[in-house]
Amino acid sequence: MAKEKSSLKVKLPFQVPFFREEAKSAAQSKTAPPLLKFCVVIVNWDKVQLVSKLLQEKEVLFHFISKGRGTATSNILDILGVGAEDKGVVICLETAALAPELLRAIREELHTHGPGAGIAFAVALSAINTVILRGFKKKRGNVKILTNEGGNDMETIKNDLIISVVNQGYSDEFMTTAREAGARGGTVLSARGLANKNAVKFLGVSVQEEKEIIIILAKRDKKEAIMQAVSRTHGIASKAEGVIFSLPVDSALGLSS
Protein backbone atom coordinates (compact mmCIF):
# COMPACT_ATOMS: atom_id res chain seq x y z
CA MET A 1 0.00 0.00 0.00
CA ALA A 2 2.98 2.23 0.55
CA LYS A 3 3.53 2.17 -3.16
CA GLU A 4 0.23 3.91 -3.67
CA LYS A 5 0.64 7.15 -5.49
CA SER A 6 -2.12 9.44 -6.48
CA SER A 7 -1.87 11.78 -9.35
CA LEU A 8 -3.74 15.00 -9.15
CA LYS A 9 -5.13 15.77 -12.52
CA VAL A 10 -3.54 19.15 -12.81
CA LYS A 11 -3.93 21.34 -15.80
CA LEU A 12 -1.74 24.20 -16.75
CA PRO A 13 -4.01 27.04 -17.76
CA PHE A 14 -1.17 29.06 -19.22
CA GLN A 15 2.48 28.77 -20.05
CA VAL A 16 5.04 28.25 -17.33
CA PRO A 17 7.47 31.14 -17.17
CA PHE A 18 10.30 29.26 -15.53
CA PHE A 19 12.88 31.74 -16.52
CA ARG A 20 12.40 35.39 -17.04
CA GLU A 21 16.06 35.94 -17.86
CA GLU A 22 18.98 33.79 -18.83
CA ALA A 23 19.67 31.02 -16.40
CA LYS A 24 23.43 31.11 -16.81
CA SER A 25 24.07 34.14 -14.67
CA ALA A 26 21.89 32.68 -11.96
CA ALA A 27 24.16 29.68 -11.69
CA GLN A 28 26.94 31.96 -10.51
CA SER A 29 24.84 33.52 -7.80
CA LYS A 30 26.48 33.03 -4.44
CA THR A 31 23.50 33.65 -2.20
CA ALA A 32 22.21 30.76 -0.10
CA PRO A 33 19.29 28.91 -1.68
CA PRO A 34 16.05 30.59 -0.70
CA LEU A 35 13.77 28.38 1.34
CA LEU A 36 10.61 27.68 -0.63
CA LYS A 37 7.09 27.17 0.56
CA PHE A 38 4.46 25.05 -1.10
CA CYS A 39 1.39 27.27 -1.01
CA VAL A 40 -2.11 25.89 -1.31
CA VAL A 41 -5.19 28.05 -1.73
CA ILE A 42 -8.59 26.40 -1.60
CA VAL A 43 -11.41 28.67 -2.71
CA ASN A 44 -14.85 28.46 -4.20
CA TRP A 45 -14.58 27.49 -7.83
CA ASP A 46 -15.93 30.81 -9.08
CA LYS A 47 -13.12 32.64 -7.26
CA VAL A 48 -10.34 30.63 -8.83
CA GLN A 49 -9.83 33.07 -11.67
CA LEU A 50 -9.34 35.88 -9.17
CA VAL A 51 -6.63 33.96 -7.37
CA SER A 52 -5.02 33.01 -10.65
CA LYS A 53 -4.95 36.63 -11.76
CA LEU A 54 -3.48 37.75 -8.47
CA LEU A 55 -0.74 35.15 -8.64
CA GLN A 56 0.19 36.34 -12.09
CA GLU A 57 0.25 39.93 -10.89
CA LYS A 58 2.53 38.92 -8.03
CA GLU A 59 4.80 37.21 -10.55
CA VAL A 60 4.53 33.85 -8.92
CA LEU A 61 6.54 31.64 -11.25
CA PHE A 62 3.87 29.03 -11.88
CA HIS A 63 0.70 27.70 -10.41
CA PHE A 64 -1.62 24.78 -11.00
CA ILE A 65 -5.34 24.52 -10.62
CA SER A 66 -7.34 21.43 -9.82
CA LYS A 67 -11.06 21.19 -9.36
CA GLY A 68 -12.37 19.57 -6.23
CA ARG A 69 -15.51 19.68 -4.23
CA GLY A 70 -16.14 20.98 -0.78
CA THR A 71 -17.84 18.95 1.87
CA ALA A 72 -21.10 19.81 3.48
CA THR A 73 -21.48 21.09 6.98
CA SER A 74 -24.23 18.62 7.72
CA ASN A 75 -25.46 15.31 6.38
CA ILE A 76 -29.00 16.45 5.79
CA LEU A 77 -27.95 19.42 3.69
CA ASP A 78 -25.69 17.20 1.65
CA ILE A 79 -28.37 14.63 0.95
CA LEU A 80 -30.68 17.44 -0.09
CA GLY A 81 -28.03 18.51 -2.55
CA VAL A 82 -27.43 21.98 -1.18
CA GLY A 83 -24.51 21.16 1.09
CA ALA A 84 -21.34 21.09 -0.92
CA GLU A 85 -19.92 23.63 -3.31
CA ASP A 86 -17.34 23.18 -6.03
CA LYS A 87 -13.88 24.17 -4.87
CA GLY A 88 -10.77 25.06 -6.74
CA VAL A 89 -7.41 24.01 -5.35
CA VAL A 90 -4.61 26.30 -6.48
CA ILE A 91 -1.05 25.25 -5.71
CA CYS A 92 2.14 27.20 -6.24
CA LEU A 93 5.65 27.68 -4.90
CA GLU A 94 6.88 30.87 -3.33
CA THR A 95 9.92 31.84 -1.30
CA ALA A 96 9.51 31.63 2.44
CA ALA A 97 10.05 35.34 2.76
CA LEU A 98 7.25 36.19 0.39
CA ALA A 99 4.78 33.41 1.09
CA PRO A 100 3.06 35.06 4.08
CA GLU A 101 2.70 38.25 2.12
CA LEU A 102 1.25 36.34 -0.81
CA LEU A 103 -1.29 34.57 1.34
CA ARG A 104 -2.24 37.85 2.94
CA ALA A 105 -2.66 39.47 -0.47
CA ILE A 106 -4.95 36.65 -1.52
CA ARG A 107 -7.01 37.20 1.57
CA GLU A 108 -7.25 40.92 0.87
CA GLU A 109 -8.31 40.22 -2.70
CA LEU A 110 -10.99 37.74 -1.76
CA HIS A 111 -12.15 39.76 1.20
CA THR A 112 -13.57 42.39 -1.10
CA HIS A 113 -15.45 39.72 -2.98
CA GLY A 114 -17.67 38.51 -0.22
CA PRO A 115 -17.29 36.13 2.67
CA GLY A 116 -16.88 32.38 2.85
CA ALA A 117 -14.10 32.27 0.34
CA GLY A 118 -11.90 29.46 1.60
CA ILE A 119 -8.51 28.73 3.17
CA ALA A 120 -4.86 29.19 2.33
CA PHE A 121 -1.79 27.62 3.87
CA ALA A 122 1.87 26.96 3.21
CA VAL A 123 4.12 23.96 3.78
CA ALA A 124 7.91 24.16 3.79
CA LEU A 125 9.78 22.23 1.11
CA SER A 126 12.53 19.88 2.09
CA ALA A 127 14.17 19.67 -1.31
CA ILE A 128 13.69 20.95 -4.83
CA ASN A 129 14.98 20.46 -8.30
CA THR A 130 17.85 22.93 -8.60
CA VAL A 131 16.89 24.12 -12.07
CA ILE A 132 13.53 25.28 -10.81
CA LEU A 133 15.11 26.84 -7.75
CA ARG A 134 17.27 28.99 -10.02
CA GLY A 135 14.14 30.66 -11.32
CA PHE A 136 13.39 31.77 -7.78
CA LYS A 137 16.97 32.81 -7.09
CA LYS A 138 16.99 34.91 -10.20
CA LYS A 139 13.72 36.51 -9.41
CA ARG A 140 14.23 37.25 -5.75
CA GLY A 141 18.00 37.14 -5.62
CA ASN A 142 18.29 40.09 -3.27
CA VAL A 143 15.67 39.20 -0.75
CA LYS A 144 17.16 38.28 2.60
CA ILE A 145 16.08 34.85 3.70
CA LEU A 146 13.96 34.95 6.78
CA THR A 147 12.96 31.80 8.54
CA ASN A 148 10.08 31.35 10.91
CA GLU A 149 8.81 34.81 10.23
CA GLY A 150 5.11 34.28 10.50
CA GLY A 151 3.80 37.81 10.44
CA ASN A 152 1.54 39.28 13.05
CA ASP A 153 -1.89 38.48 11.76
CA MET A 154 -1.12 34.85 10.97
CA GLU A 155 -2.91 32.46 13.22
CA THR A 156 -0.63 31.68 16.10
CA ILE A 157 -2.28 28.32 16.69
CA LYS A 158 -0.43 25.58 14.88
CA ASN A 159 -2.27 23.74 12.15
CA ASP A 160 -1.85 20.42 10.47
CA LEU A 161 -2.92 19.23 7.08
CA ILE A 162 -4.54 15.81 7.20
CA ILE A 163 -4.36 14.08 3.84
CA SER A 164 -6.31 10.90 3.27
CA VAL A 165 -6.55 8.76 0.18
CA VAL A 166 -9.61 6.52 0.14
CA ASN A 167 -11.38 4.39 -2.41
CA GLN A 168 -13.90 6.11 -4.62
CA GLY A 169 -17.24 6.73 -2.99
CA TYR A 170 -16.18 6.85 0.65
CA SER A 171 -15.44 10.53 1.03
CA ASP A 172 -18.93 11.48 2.22
CA GLU A 173 -18.97 8.98 5.05
CA PHE A 174 -15.35 9.77 5.79
CA MET A 175 -16.20 13.42 6.28
CA THR A 176 -19.13 12.61 8.51
CA THR A 177 -16.76 10.79 10.85
CA ALA A 178 -14.17 13.55 10.59
CA ARG A 179 -16.73 16.20 11.42
CA GLU A 180 -17.90 14.30 14.46
CA ALA A 181 -14.28 14.17 15.61
CA GLY A 182 -13.88 17.92 15.28
CA ALA A 183 -13.00 18.71 11.66
CA ARG A 184 -14.54 21.91 10.36
CA GLY A 185 -14.51 21.14 6.68
CA GLY A 186 -12.62 19.47 3.92
CA THR A 187 -12.04 19.31 0.21
CA VAL A 188 -12.28 16.24 -1.97
CA LEU A 189 -10.27 15.68 -5.12
CA SER A 190 -10.84 12.85 -7.56
CA ALA A 191 -7.71 10.91 -8.33
CA ARG A 192 -6.50 7.77 -9.95
CA GLY A 193 -4.51 5.18 -8.09
CA LEU A 194 -1.34 4.19 -9.88
CA ALA A 195 -0.52 1.02 -7.99
CA ASN A 196 1.25 -0.43 -10.99
CA LYS A 197 1.23 -4.03 -9.82
CA ASN A 198 -2.53 -4.34 -9.88
CA ALA A 199 -3.19 -2.24 -12.96
CA VAL A 200 -5.65 -4.08 -15.15
CA LYS A 201 -5.03 -3.94 -18.85
CA PHE A 202 -8.04 -3.46 -21.08
CA LEU A 203 -7.39 -3.40 -24.81
CA GLY A 204 -3.81 -2.54 -24.04
CA VAL A 205 -4.69 0.49 -21.97
CA SER A 206 -4.24 0.23 -18.24
CA VAL A 207 -7.39 0.75 -16.23
CA GLN A 208 -6.67 2.62 -13.06
CA GLU A 209 -8.29 2.51 -9.68
CA GLU A 210 -10.52 5.39 -8.68
CA LYS A 211 -9.47 7.17 -5.54
CA GLU A 212 -10.53 10.21 -3.62
CA ILE A 213 -8.09 12.49 -1.85
CA ILE A 214 -9.54 14.29 1.14
CA ILE A 215 -7.76 17.35 2.45
CA ILE A 216 -8.62 18.56 5.93
CA LEU A 217 -6.93 21.48 7.63
CA ALA A 218 -7.18 21.06 11.36
CA LYS A 219 -5.81 22.71 14.49
CA ARG A 220 -2.95 20.73 15.92
CA ASP A 221 -4.81 19.79 19.11
CA LYS A 222 -7.70 18.35 17.10
CA LYS A 223 -5.53 16.48 14.63
CA GLU A 224 -5.02 13.31 16.60
CA ALA A 225 -8.67 12.84 17.46
CA ILE A 226 -9.72 13.26 13.84
CA MET A 227 -7.05 10.95 12.51
CA GLN A 228 -7.85 8.30 15.07
CA ALA A 229 -11.54 8.45 14.32
CA VAL A 230 -11.21 8.18 10.56
CA SER A 231 -8.50 5.54 10.78
CA ARG A 232 -10.83 3.38 12.81
CA THR A 233 -13.76 3.64 10.41
CA HIS A 234 -12.06 4.24 7.07
CA GLY A 235 -8.52 3.09 7.64
CA ILE A 236 -6.49 0.59 5.71
CA ALA A 237 -8.41 -2.35 7.15
CA SER A 238 -11.79 -1.00 6.06
CA LYS A 239 -13.44 -1.09 2.67
CA ALA A 240 -12.34 2.48 2.10
CA GLU A 241 -8.69 1.33 2.37
CA GLY A 242 -7.76 4.77 3.58
CA VAL A 243 -4.18 5.92 3.77
CA ILE A 244 -4.12 8.73 6.30
CA PHE A 245 -1.25 11.04 7.19
CA SER A 246 -0.66 14.61 8.22
CA LEU A 247 1.80 17.36 7.43
CA PRO A 248 2.76 20.33 9.55
CA VAL A 249 1.47 23.55 8.06
CA ASP A 250 3.18 26.74 9.03
CA SER A 251 0.99 29.59 7.97
CA ALA A 252 -2.71 29.08 7.61
CA LEU A 253 -5.27 31.73 6.89
CA GLY A 254 -9.01 31.62 6.78
CA LEU A 255 -9.93 33.60 3.71
CA SER A 256 -13.41 34.43 4.87
CA SER A 257 -13.94 37.69 6.62
Binding site: L35, A124, L125, S126, A127, N129, T147
Partner: peptide
Protein backbone atom coordinates in the same frame (compact mmCIF):
# COMPACT_ATOMS: atom_id res chain seq x y z
CA UNK B 1 22.45 20.01 -13.88
CA UNK B 2 18.88 19.15 -14.74
CA UNK B 3 18.83 16.24 -12.35
CA UNK B 4 20.43 18.14 -9.51
CA UNK B 5 18.35 18.49 -6.38
CA UNK B 6 18.92 21.10 -3.73
CA UNK B 7 18.28 19.64 -0.31
CA UNK B 8 17.57 22.07 2.46
CA UNK B 9 19.16 21.83 5.87
CA UNK B 10 16.69 20.23 8.20
CA UNK B 11 16.88 23.20 10.52
CA UNK B 12 15.68 25.51 7.79
CA UNK B 13 12.29 23.94 7.42
CA UNK B 14 11.83 22.75 10.96
Amino acid sequence: EIGHITIYEEAAYG
